[in-house]
């Protein structure tokens, strides 16, 4: 009964808005992946759409395969296109056609070698990479044969850790984790006895809140460092720089979206989140243990002044 009344109420509220929009009544399918900020952001945007009287549905997908789905129109959009992690898949899908760039967020992204704060106690020269190399042996494991061990992201993230170690002549072996979870397990295992570790990590990310830490400072990224050996300190090697410290965070949209859901598409191009906002969304779920839907509620309630103009300018 309470549900029934809620439904009536929702319909009553929704109807007038629908009348103003020419958007299709088909649900807008929004993909969600397996990290919190993206899930919450998707729900925030989804709830904005629902306020506009649109139908929204969420589908869990692989974060690389999703570009193929956007291209085919199986899902309508993608809210977090990370330059480092997904730039490759995104560009590939872009060249095949069917999806397009729907603008950048304000947020910048960074992905690189990273260590939790306690590591600095054992290797005080950090975050400099040469200092890291000098204390390589404290990162040694039973299997690394005396060299330091760097735990890189999954191979399919194409992080080129091995190439960098070679290019910079570092005393490290590179092991690829199979998943993000495996990275966390490694940090979590090191935590109780403050064992020094250096792993692949990125920002914005919930891990920053759980384990404070820093990125290792490698030679600064220059454009072409991954295609022109001359760039970077080693004249004969690629990948002899750190990753860009301010990578983009884009939105992507299916080519059919502007026609099918014009006002939703308009909102998508307008909206933009910042690093602190994204971190806050993640925190609701990762630290406060809210469900993504509830987290989106809370975030929206606290940030009406930010989202209302986006909706207002499009309806």
């Amino acid at each position: 009964m309470k549900k029934l009344s809620a439904m009536v109420l929702a319909t009553a509220l929704a109807t007038p808005v629908v009348a103003t929009a020419a958007d299709s009544e088909d649900p807008i399918i929004i993909p969600i992946h397996n990290w919190s900020s993206q899930i919450v952001m998707s729900h925030v945007v989804g709830q904005m759409y629902e306020e506009m009287g649109l139908n929204v549905e969420f589908v869990t997908t692989d974060s690389q395969a999703v570009y193929e789905s956007v291209r085919l129109g199986d899902v309508a959009l993608e809210l977090e296109v990370w330059e480092g992690a997904f730039g490759h898949s995104f560009r590939e899908a872009l060249s095949k056609g069917g999806l397009h760039d729907a603008g950048d967020h304000d947020a910048v992204t960074r992905e690189d070698w990273w260590y939790p704060m306690w590591t600095k106690d054992a290797c005080p020269g950090l975050p400099n990479w040469q200092a890291l190399n000098d204390c390589a042996e404290i990162f040694a494991t039973a299997e690394s044969g005396g060299k330091g061990r760097y735990l890189d992201g999954p191979v399919d993230w194409l992080k080129h850790g091995k190439e960098r170690v070679e290019a910079l002549g570092m005393n490290f072996v590179v092991v690829n984790a199979g998943s993000a979870a495996a990275l966390w397990a490694e940090i979590g295992a090191a935590e109780p006895d403050m064992r020094p570790v250096v792993v692949f990590n990125w920002t914005p990310n919930f891990a920053e809140a759980v384990w404070p830490g820093e990125f290792v400072e490698f030679p600064t990224w220059e454009d072409g460092c991954d295609s022109d050996p001359a760039k970077g300190p080693n004249p004969d090697a690629l990948y002899d720089c750190g990753n860009p410290a301010d990578g983009y965070l884009k939105k992507a949209a299916w080519d059919g979206m502007p026609d099918k859901w014009p006002s939703a598409y308009c909102v998508l191009t307008k909206l933009s989140f910042t690093n602190p906002q994204i971190a806050e969304m993640a925190k609701f779920v990762d630290i406060d243990e809210l469900e993504p839907e509830e987290a989106a509620d809370e975030w929206l309630a606290a940030n009406r002044d930010i989202v209302d103009p986006w909706i207002g300018s499009c309806t």
């Binding site: 397996n34 990290w35 919190s36 899930i39 969420f58 589908v59 869990t60 997908t61 692989d62 395969a65 998943s179 993000a180 979870a181 966390w184 397990a185 979590g188 919930f206 891990a207 759980v210 779920v285 990762d286």
Partner: peptide
């Protein structure tokens, strides 16, 4: 199957693991 968009317990399990 959560890897290919099966919603529900499996997807949640993976999401929980990814936030440790």
């Amino acid at each position: 199957t959560a890897f290919i968009g099966m919603p529900g317990l499996g997807a949640k399990l993976l999401a929980m693991m990814n936030s440790f």
